[in-house]
Amino acid sequence: MENIIRTLRAEQGWSQAALAERLDVSRQSVNAIETGKYDPSLPLAFAIARIFGKSIEEVFKDPATPEPAEKAAE
């Protein structure tokens, strides 16, 4: 699953460790989620979205789901 956590984190000026501290997970967890090597559970995905004041759909993107523009073209 793709996500924009790295961008959102950079906007806030947070390190991976700082975000991990806020989420109460390990820094390795944040790194694995950011790089797409690990897909978080729904509660953790909600917690991540909540921290950045976004919805889950804004933070995470399913590569199999077409973009709204692509959908409209169909």
């Binding site: 997970v25 390795q28 559970s41 953790l44």
Partner: peptide
């Protein structure tokens, strides 16, 4: 007791 990713590892 730990977070989900650490538990998995």
């Amino acid at each position: 007791e730990t977070d989900e990713y650490t538990r998995l590892r």
